[in-house]
């Protein structure tokens, strides 16, 4: 196997996903810190969408469907609604702040879990490579 292709495939996807997750984390933290700032508008980042944009089509990690009964593995199916700036939601506060703290905290822990999962997957990938290099000893 060429050394060039050793880190191809799923590695770039994982790297990009980790990068985007940490960026999303910063945005969520910013929203939480500004929970009481008048006229502040909450921001969000849809990681799955960004990932698909940057990876393009024909990604090696997409599931192939060769039969009608197969589950569709396209990433876009996992996106639930697009909302980069949550301006469409109605304001229930007098100070025009659009941060929903419950939503933000939920997003924080979800994003945190997904980041940890990705880091673990990447770690296991490297562990697997290491095992192969050492010949399983």
């Amino acid at each position: 196997m060429e050394s060039r292709s050793l880190f191809k495939g799923v590695f770039p996807v994982l790297e990009k996903a980790l990068d985007l997750r940490s960026m999303k984390h910063s945005l969520i933290v910013s929203n939480i810190a500004n929970k009481d700032t008048p006229n502040y508008k909450a921001f969000d980042l849809i990681v799955e969408e960004e990932l698909e944009k940057s990876m393009g089509k024909g990604d090696p990690t997409d599931l192939k469907t060769t039969h009608d009964g197969h589950l569709c593995g396209k990433r876009s199916d996992r996106i639930n609604g697009k909302s980069v700036n949550d301006a469409d939601q109605f304001f229930h506060r007098r100070d025009n702040n659009s941060v929903d703290i419950d939503k933000e905290m939920a997003k924080l822990s979800e994003n945190n879990l997904l980041y940890n999962a990705l880091a673990q997957i990447l770690s296991r990938k490297f562990g697997g490579l290491k095992d192969v290099i050492k010949g399983g000893q």
Binding site: H25, I28, V29, L108, S109, F126
Partner: peptide, 18 residues
């Protein structure tokens, strides 16, 4: 809570490849 989450993530990132 946000700071704790940030710390968790940063530590997890350091564990990659260990």
């Amino acid at each position: 809570t946000a700071i704790k989450a940030t710390k968790d993530m940063a530590l997890k990132a350091l564990e990659i490849g260990r």
